[in-house]
C-alpha cells in the first residue's frame, strides 16, 4: 500500500509539472493585457507600456516562466496584479465558499441520485423506472445556469425564501452563509444527481442479479435488507467513483453558478482573473485545482480498498 501511494505521488508530481507548463503557456497565449484593463479605456499606449514595465510583463516569456517555476518550487505562487495580495492568500480566502458549495451540491446529488437510482433498479422496467430514466435525462441536459436563474426567479424573487445573490452580510455566520448557498447548491446538484442516479441504477442492476443476492432473498431476508445491505454496499464502488469525480468537477466547475449567484468563490476568482488577465491568479488557481483533482482521484482509489476488502494494493 505504502509503495503504491509513493508511486502515485511521484506520478502526481510529473503531472503537476506538465500542468504548470501548460497553464503558463495558455495564460500568455490568450491575447489581452492586464495593464490595459487596469488603466481603463482612456489610457494611451505609453501609459500601458509604462505599467507593463512596472509589472514585469515586458520581460521575455522565458524569464517570466523561470520566475514562475522558481515561485512554485519555493511554495509561493506570486502576487495578484489586481488584488495586491499573495495568490495563495487570495485562493485560500475564496476556497471556503467553493468547498462548502461543492460539498452541499454533492450532498444534494447523492441525496437525490442514490435513492432514486436504487428505486429505479429495484422497479426495473416499470413506469417508475421509465419516469426516472426520462427525468435523469432531462436533469442532466439542463444547464446549471438556467436552473440557477429559474430557482432565483421562483424561490428568491417570487417567494422571497432565499437571497438572490452574495454570500451574506458582512460578518455573517455559517448558517447565514449556508442559507445563501442553498439555491446555488441545488443548481449545481440537480444535473449531477442525474448522473449519480444513472450510475446507481446501472450498478445496482448488475449486483441485484448476482447469486449472493438470490441467496439472501431465498433466506427470507426482507427486501430492504437485501437491497441496501447486500445490493447497495456491493454497488458502491462505481458510485463512489462518480461521487468523487463529481466533487472534483464541482470544485473547479462551479464557475458559472458562482457568477450567476454573485458568489465570491474560487470560480468567480478565476473568471475575474481571466477577464483582467491576472496571470499569477490564473496560473495559481489552475495549478491548485489540477492538484486537487489528482489528489481526489488518489483518495478515491484508496477508498476502494476500504469499501471492498478484496481490493489490495
Amino acid at each position: 500500500m505504502a509503495a503504491y501511494v509513493v508511486r502515485r505521488l511521484l506520478s502526481m508530481l510529473v503531472v503537476m509539472c506538465l500542468v504548470a507548463v501548460v497553464v503558463f503557456i495558455v495564460a500568455r497565449v490568450v491575447p489581452g493585457d492586464p495593464a490595459a484593463v487596469m488603466l481603463g479605456t482612456s489610457a494611451t499606449p505609453e501609459d500601458v507600456a509604462a505599467l507593463r514595465a512596472r509589472l514585469g510583463l515586458d520581460q521575455p516569456l522565458l524569464t517570466q516562466f523561470g520566475l514562475f517555476a522558481l515561485q512554485i518550487v519555493t511554495g509561493d505562487l506570486g502576487e495578484s496584479i489586481f488584488l495586491n495580495k499573495p495568490v495563495l492568500t487570495a485562493i485560500a480566502e475564496r476556497s471556503e465558499l467553493t468547498l462548502l458549495l461543492a460539498t452541499m451540491a454533492v450532498m444534494v446529488s447523492v441525496a437525490v441520485g442514490v435513492p432514486v437510482g436504487v428505486i429505479s433498479a429495484v422497479r426495473r422496467g416499470t413506469a417508475v423506472d421509465q419516469a426516472v430514466i426520462a427525468g435523469a435525462m432531462l436533469a442532466a441536459s439542463l444547464p446549471s445556469f438556467w436552473i440557477g436563474l429559474t430557482l432565483i426567479r421562483w424561490f428568491a424573487v417570487n417567494l422571497g425564501w432565499f437571497p438572490v445573490s452574495g454570500y451574506g452580510e458582512p460578518g455573517a455566520g455559517l448558517l447565514e452563509r449556508m442559507h445563501h448557498l442553498v439555491l446555488p447548491a441545488l443548481a449545481l446538484g440537480i444535473p449531477n444527481s442525474a448522473i449519480i442516479t444513472r450510475f446507481t441504477r446501472s450498478s445496482m442492476l448488475d449486483v441485484l442479479t448476482e447469486d449472493y443476492v438470490r441467496t439472501a432473498r431465498a433466506k427470507g431476508l426482507p427486501t430492504h435488507r437485501v437491497v441496501l445491505k447486500h445490493g447497495l454496499r456491493n454497488a458502491m464502488i462505481p458510485i463512489l467513483t462518480v461521487v468523487g469525480l463529481t466533487l472534483a468537477v464541482l470544485i473547479g466547475g462551479a464557475i458559472v453558478t458562482e457568477t450567476v449567484f454573485g458568489l465570491p468563490g474560487a470560480g468567480n476568482l478565476i473568471v475575474s482573473a481571466v477577464l483582467r488577465r491576472d496571470y499569477p491568479v490564473i496560473q495559481g488557481a489552475l495549478l491548485i485545482i489540477s492538484g486537487l483533482y489528482v489528489l481526489i482521484n488518489l483518495v478515491i482509489d484508496l477508498l476502494y480498498a476500504v469499501v471492498d476488502p478484496r481490493i489490495r494494493y
Binding site: 436563474l149 432565483i152 426567479r153 428568491a156 424573487v157 422571497g160 437571497p163 438572490v164 445573490s165 452574495g166 457568477t259 450567476v260 449567484f261 454573485g262 473568471v271
Partner: peptide
C-alpha cells in the same frame, strides 16, 4: 457596492429587494 457581473442577477436582486 456589490459586484454583480451577471445582468439578470442584478435585475432579480432589484426585484427581490436585495439591491
Amino acid at each position: 457596492f456589490v459586484p454583480t457581473p451577471n445582468a439578470v442577477t442584478r435585475l432579480e436582486g432589484a426585484l427581490s429587494g436585495q439591491f
